[in-house]
Design a protein around this nucleic acid. Structure first.
Lengths: 219, 219
DNA sequence: AAAGCGGTGGCAAGAAGCTGCCATACACTG
DNA sequence: CAGTGTATGGCAGCTTCTTGCCACCGCTTT
């Protein structure tokens, strides 16, 4: 069974019974929480969680760092967590929304259009698809960071410049070659390196590299 | 379009033209390389890679550590890499085989039965499915480890000296202070550092630090 | 004993990296 | 427009690192 629907309204109409039927596992991967702004669908899950006590099934949300962009989003996430859901942040952008219900159904969405036009969803119970998607979400989940750990770790997030510098440093280039490749003057490149080292609270390049490696900052 | 086939033979019959049509990206996630033992399908890709020169498109394989179990498998992997494919190892088990061709098609398999009976494959070009699966593979890919880094990570255990040097470097000391604390001459200390860098195949201290950090060598 | 070998340490020249100072450029503000 | 703040790039001098060369020591082999 594979069905394709356009727009959230139609999806809700089709998928509502599925949401209501979740027995032990609800997992979703998405860029942020702006989708599902229509409360109907989420309610089906939320309501079953808010009965107090431990949630009757496991709810997991895998999100990209973009989900933490504004204050509202963070507050919302904390509510979700307070209701018993697990939230992790993945380093990947996760532009497509993906949902797996138990081991029974998968819902895959197209990339959300910038101004919230209707998008296409595919709902399926094909075992190989559900299994494959579930497996991939598990893999991404395993590698992602718990929300509180993510927020607690003062993980220096690097802008594009910082990442480029990091890439050069990690590539073993001399400052001169790196600066040339980045189109910067030697002086400026070294300033960037110094900034990076300050960010990593390091007193030597080796130490900075070690920190970067430990933090998984591959650039 | 969503089709379901049973058994590798039928899959090959159906999917061969797809494999032959790959333009710029072939990515697959699987537990190991025992699947596709039937050479027909792989050949379609392999042959197009072995023409010498840079591969005409990107080939990526995301595998679980089980793929490195025996010597044959490792040798095979090195061949694949030599032919221009990228191979990464994920910490997750990846029981379902999953393949994405360009941004056009996705192939998802059921879990391989223990003794190689026929299994069910789903082939689709539905954009939301292909996009979603691709996104998830990208996420898992990003979090996985490069094959050579993974194999190198059984790093030759550093002896006490090496660990001490690493501790000094990681502590941000200058060579002079480090050598003094270790009771070594400056010359010898620097020799040790050079040895360590050679071991880490690094061309700069930063790079060495990064490798050390990635490999979790805290000294 | 003599020769060979691996590890050590001193020395020095050169490369690489670090940083203060200054001049310039551009955006923003009053 | 003048003033302020921020980012850039050149320059210079300093520190740190890198490496080759040589001498020495202790050990084993011949």
């Amino acid at each position: 069974m594979v069905i394709t629907v356009r727009g959230d309204t139609e999806l809700v109409a089709r998928a509502y019974p599925l949401f209501a039927s979740v027995k032990d596992d609800f997992v979703c991967a998405a860029r942020d929480l702006t989708t599902w702004a229509q409360p109907e669908a989420r309610e089906a899950v939320i309501r079953r969680l808010s009965g107090g006590g431990p949630p009757p099934f496991r709810v997991r949300k895998l999100l990209s760092p973009a989900a933490l962009a504004d204050e509202d989003a963070r507050r919302h996430l904390w509510e979700v967590v307070a209701q018993g859901a697990e939230v992790r942040i993945s380093a990947s952008p996760l532009p497509h929304e993906t949902i797996v219900l138990d081991r029974s159904f998968a819902i895959l969405a197209e990339v959300a259009p910038p101004f919230g036009g209707p998008r296409e969803y595919t709902v399926t119970d094909t075992p190989s698809v559900v299994g494959g998607v579930r497996m991939l979400i598990e893999a991404a989940w395993k590698a992602a960071t718990e929300l509180d750990a993510y927020l607690r770790s003062d993980m220096p997030q690097l802008d594009a410049d910082g990442q480029a510098v990091l890439r050069m440093l990690g590539g073993g280039h001399t400052d001169e070659s790196a600066a040339r490749q980045l189109g910067l003057s030697l002086r400026t490149y070294r300033r960037r390196v110094a900034d990076l080292m300050a960010l990593l609270e390091s007193g030597s390049r080796f130490q900075a590299g070690m920190r970067a490696g430990e933090l998984g900052l591959t650039g």
